[in-house]
């Protein structure tokens, strides 16, 4: 699963630390999502989308491999 978290976060002038504090997770979690090492749970994905004021589908994009 791809994501645009880094681009959208930077567009909102938020640091990883600031975003982490807003969604009550560690900075490592934000880094691992941005690097696509980790796919967040639905509640965290919704929280991120709400904080960044976008739709979840704009933040996380399904790839062909996700259907297999």
């Amino acid at each position: 699963m791809k994501n645009n978290l880094k681009e959208i976060r930077e567009k909102n002038n938020l640091t990883q630390e600031a975003l982490a504090n807003l969604v009550f997770v560690s900075r490592q979690t934000i880094i691992s999502i941005e690097k696509e090492y980790y796919v967040p749970t639905t509640p965290l994905a919704l929280k991120l989308a709400q904080i960044l004021k976008i739709k979840v589908e704009e933040l996380f994009i399904l790839e062909k491999t996700d259907w297999k």
Binding site: F24, S26, T29, Y38, P40, T41
Partner: peptide
């Protein structure tokens, strides 16, 4: 616990 214990840490 870690200082911030979240879902990634649990994972």
């Amino acid at each position: 616990k870690e200082k911030v214990e979240d879902e990634y840490i649990m994972n």
